[in-house]
Design a protein around this nucleic acid. Structure first.
Lengths: 205, 205
DNA sequence: ACAATTATTTATTGATTACTACAAAATAGA
DNA sequence: TCTATTTTGTAGTAATCAATAAATAATTGT
């Protein structure tokens, strides 16, 4: 049983909430920029408890990435999946990306995966594989929504779901990047309409 | 005079070459990940000389960004500008992005600006402005090539140069991101054809 | 040749880093 | 109440960090 009371002094912190706090710290400061002091303070866990529960810093980072990636509440994705009309769904996705990229609660901008994780992919061991899996999972998740639209007749039978899913994802990266540099949200918004049409355009021949 | 001989012991290092070495170190390790020891060793400059010439670490980082951004030899851009046929030019750009993103000499992948610099934009002072300027400069540079194609009749008069320039740039970001995660170059290449056509497609009405 | 100037080299600074020993505190079962 | 077990809080560890002090070496101008 999971809820069975265990012998010994009970833990003071909630594992999942602490991990989410770690995500925020890494998000805001990056892997190298986040010190164990930053982490212990934000998580409300003293160093010895942290090491006992999550291992060393690198392991905590990997667990934080997993925690973030397995969280299917990423707002642009949710917006895309929950809107029945496919055109409105794509538009909702793009708009939500802008909001997500420019106004994030923790102060961090963009996407955890595409900013700090992408940067550390080359230097921090094991991160690259986690990142690749997260990208592929997102591609598939986007494609699935297109497939559903094909099934109900909203999209042509020969609509290339996966290709357009990748397109959508890549466009998203560009917006996130621009948001990081504080490009005006207005200039980005002006492109949304045309990009939605591109994503949904009929495949040639 | 710039070449006038100065009094005192001559410098052992070439300022520009040393800065370029600094770029490579920051590129590979990020701002926080790069230690002064890493930098002094790669640059071939002892700490006191480095501080005298470039100031502290943060100032060196800003100078490195400037050095990188003002280098107009970025291969995808050059490929795009030097190919006379506009369709081939766009294709050359995309292909070069893939090469640039997946095989970089220093071991770093992607683009210095879009990886390490973008990550530090939120936390390292003054970086955000430099990044924004670099993005806008690139947008304009891409748009200029489209304008030239409009002038010689290769593109329609109402072709939205700046909008498509931003599109091209954003698609680039997606590819760079995927390359960081070591997505297969093959899967990325398969999309290039269709994306070239999208970038050059006639604007509707 | 000699002073003035500038850069180099070596060695080191205090601060911060990731990480841990140790003992007190809090639980469960007897 | 007593023992066994687990976590907590305090106070550290050695190593590394960014940045510097002081002495030496190499150049120019006179």
């Amino acid at each position: 049983m999971n809820s069975a009371k265990k012998v010994g002094r009970p833990k003071k912190f909630d594992r999942d909430a602490a991990l989410m706090s770690a995500v925020n710290v890494f998000w805001l400061k990056g892997y190298d920029g986040a010190s164990m002091t930053d982490l212990t303070e934000a998580m409300g866990v003293n160093p010895p408890s942290l090491y006992a529960e999550f291992g060393d810093k690198l392991n905590l980072y990997r667990l934080a990435i997993d925690r973030y990636a397995s969280n299917d509440a990423c707002s642009p994705l949710v917006a895309f999946e929950s809107e029945p009309d496919i055109e409105k769904a794509v538009r909702a996705f793009m708009n939500e990306v802008l909001v997500y990229a420019t106004r994030h609660d923790s102060g961090a901008k963009g996407c955890f995966l595409s900013s700090s994780v992408a940067t550390s992919a080359g230097s921090v061991e094991g991160v690259q594989e986690l990142l690749k899996k997260a990208i592929e999972a997102t591609d598939r998740r986007l494609a699935k929504r297109f497939d559903a639209a094909k099934a109900d007749g909203s999209l042509a039978k020969n609509f290339p779901s996966l290709e357009r899913a990748r397109l959508m994802f890549d466009l998203r990266q560009g917006l996130v990047f621009r948001a990081r540099a504080c490009c005006s949200i207005k200039s980005m918004k002006s492109d949304v309409d045309k990009r939605v049409k591109m994503i949904l355009s009929e495949p040639d021949s």
